[in-house]
Amino acid sequence: MNTEQPLTADTFLAGLWRENPVFVTVLGMCPTLAVSNSVLNALAMGLATTFVLIGSGALVSLLRNVIPRAVRIACYIAIIATFVTVVDYLIQAISLRLYQALGAFIQLIVVNCIILGRAEAYASRHPPLASMINAAGNGLGFTLALLCLGTVRELLGSGSLLGIPLLGPQFAPWVIMLLPPGGFFVLGGWLLLFNWRQRKQGVKIPVAEVHRHGA
């Protein structure tokens, strides 16, 4: 079955906006809720995931004609785990403080379903360049979504952005925004906004695409 799509601007833009992995296909909820309590954490997690998406997309695509269907999941997971290990070392080399703030969620990128979804639905059927561009779009879409959550949560939960106090000393932080319930509230708010906007524009959510990715 040849399902290869031509390389267009949409290869990149689809994941960024129309099929945004968080707001539209609602994938990768574990890191989305867990590490979006500050802008810096959101940015670091988004970029780390983007790196793993691009690296694993390229390698899966390069090896797509060598990997038999029967062992494809094992192969994808091994490839993804490799890039997660690399990004784990890189973040430790950049900043230990950031590494500690992100905790176990760096290692948990291995089981982020956005990445396995891209490997299965796109990289295994497309050449390396298209796979990397598509992965970059999805990775940046994920980063954008985390930043949307991180901005609101840090602003209301700590009264600051990127650690810089903005709301003054009189502001009493809404601590709940930093806790898991705050993550759900803010995600719910953004999903509401996204769906309302798309409904207003008459955009249909690509259900077939959602189902092909799995959960």
Binding site: L63, V66, I67, V71, A78, I79, T82, V86
Partner: peptide, 16 residues
């Protein structure tokens, strides 16, 4: 299967 898994193990090992 063995070839693909072996190749990926090798590439992963070198990268890590």
């Amino acid at each position: 299967m063995i070839r693909a898994l072996g190749l990926i193990a090798l590439v992963s090992g070198v990268l890590i």
